[in-house]
Design a protein around this nucleic acid. Structure first.
Lengths: 108, 108
DNA sequence: GATATCTATCGTATTTTAGCGATATTTACA
DNA sequence: TGTAAATATCGCTAAAATACGATAGATATC
């Protein structure tokens, strides 16, 4: 049983975890940061930026796309990738509401 | 070759990914939220809160502890868990600097 | 139409994660 | 000292994640 018991948790818990998981790999962090840095849609060259094979990069892109964080549009031979602003804002909101909920206390 | 090529990425990328991965499971999100809600160190009863076996919960706690996000101190028979404020602030900072770096642009 | 280019997908090997029962281990208390 | 309670760890299984070569599909360009 190496699969998570998704049905046992709330929709919110599952959703936050989904986004966190999507960001839980250095290659995907690198992709996100590259997309941010470029300030535009990226057609192609993500593969050249990463120390991974084309197949592996494509797979990571797919995972980010599945989570909703990025979108990919086919433009001729190339595919144009960018962060989905709506989803990004949503993710940011969810994470921050968790971050901000924590008030340090005096114990251990 | 089923292991991540950690050495091929920057320390920063790896660290952010590490924290994201730690949060990338609904059970661990649930644990974090419970720790936040209780506003104190939790000795025990996390197991009763989650729809998972004691062994599995213990494993999730260990993962959160390994990432540094929570600390656990033994107090008698029980173990006292809480979020590490320092690390929490650090994680929050890292995530927010990524979140904030993104400026929506007009493209696809 | 042939060919080069870009990207996705398939197949496969390996590793890691998730889950749990069973079993230590540790401490409190009778 | 013996026993109960709380956790951690061991051992195992099943599934998912990571990585990559090979291949397929689509589209420019010659």
């Amino acid at each position: 049983m190496g699969s998570a018991k998704t049905e046992a948790f709330t929709q919110e818990e599952n959703e936050v975890a989904k986004y966190a998981k999507a960001l839980g790999h250095p290659a995907r962090i690198a992709i996100i940061q590259y997309l941010i840095k470029k300030q535009s849609c990226i057609c192609g060259d993500i593969v050249n930026e990463l120390p991974l094979s084309q197949a592996t990069v494509s797979q990571h892109l797919k995972e980010l796309k599945t989570s909703g964080i990025i979108k990919g549009e086919i433009e001729g031979v190339k595919t144009c990738y960018c962060i989905d602003p709506e989803v990004w804002k949503k993710v940011q909101g969810k994470f921050n509401s968790i971050f901000d909920a924590f008030k340090p206390i005096n114990c251990c």
